[in-house]
Design a protein around this nucleic acid. Structure first.
Lengths: 181, 181
DNA sequence: GTCTCATTTGAGAATACACTCAAATTTGAG
DNA sequence: CTCAAATTTGAGTGTATTCTCAAATGAGAC
């Protein structure tokens, strides 16, 4: 869609604007006007580069999801501590994107079920990742026990995320610290 | 706002229609038109009884939550088990309403800060309720320790709720069972 | 330099939404 | 029965949204 330098640069600016808008106004407040104003671009230009608003948002969310990952490439190397730490760091650095992630998980879509499927798959991988890390760290042979604990750990982390949105004074890092005992 | 029988009946129909619409179409699909069509009512009639669409939705959610409250009147009588049980029952019986509640908590105000304030207050009361129950059950004199555990318990429950939306096969009741040890 | 195609413009079409209001109708207390 | 007040109507207001398109401008291959 973009062939010349100008087009690629505009695409980059639009994605940055979308990311900022999502963080600042949430998914509902991220309208085409907000994105375009922020990117210094007219709607026609946006639609020359993206087939729909959803597609731009999806791209940003995908990037945000990947940002939670402590070891994007490797598998079977991270520890439970690292995974918890990665989540807490993500919450601290990108609270609004974390909120967007949970919002989309709850609304089940931005529009079509496509996004939901992506989030589901991401969650499955995350549970597996936590399960592996826990099993490895504690030398568990019973994988189902490790999986059970992984689900609970992830649930508590997600729940703490929800709690901080309602009460920003909550110190997630401190609360999460005692979680692995 | 409603004084005569007719008004009360209409109010009841509107709330039922809102509840059905939320369950069937989700919060985004619950437009004024959908509600009014379903209730067999015109917009003007709706606004004679409710100050806003938001208010009708909140009323429905609040009623659903209260419906599973183990001790709606009394204070300081419920046990942690009862409170967890109430949450799980709510999740099982009204999964879509539970989702709406979390969605509203995450989107925050959406429009006015009024709604956010209401949700914050509800959450504070819930934390207090859990704190009291835990302190009572375990004979804790250190209230801050009970509060810490209450926050974590609630977080895990909220997180399990999020998890079931992504993976409906998750047995929340079973997972929540071991939560109080 | 020229010519093609990528890019940008910006007004505006098409639609959807929450909400209003003056007028008509119905209710029920006295 | 009377009449004030509650209720209902439904067309209409205002605003916001996503997305389109014909025309203008810019880039770069040759």
């Amino acid at each position: 869609m973009a062939r010349y330098k100008a087009g690629l640069e505009t695409r980059r600016r639009i994605l940055a604007a979308t990311r900022d808008a999502l963080a600042e106004h949430g998914p509902d407040g991220t309208t085409l006007k907000v994105i375009c104003d922020r990117a210094g671009v007219q709607p026609g230009s946006f639609y020359n580069l993206f087939p729909s608003k959803e597609e731009a948002i999806l791209t940003v969310v995908r990037e945000a999801i990947e940002a939670v990952d402590p070891h994007p490439d490797g598998v079977g190397v991270d520890t439970p501590d690292e995974l918890v730490e990665a989540y807490v760091t993500f919450l601290e650095h990108q609270p609004l994107l974390a909120r967007v992630y949970l919002q989309i998980a709850l609304t089940g879509a931005v529009a079509d079920g496509h996004v939901l499927g992506r989030i589901r798959r991401h969650r499955e991988r995350r549970v597996e990742r936590f399960t592996d890390a826990i099993a490895r760290a504690e030398g568990l042979t019973d994988r189902s026990e490790a999986e059970r604990r992984a689900v609970m750990l992830l649930a508590t982390l997600d729940g703490l995320a929800v709690a901080t949105f309602l009460d920003p004074s909550l110190d997630v890092r401190k609360r999460a610290a005692g979680l692995l005992d």
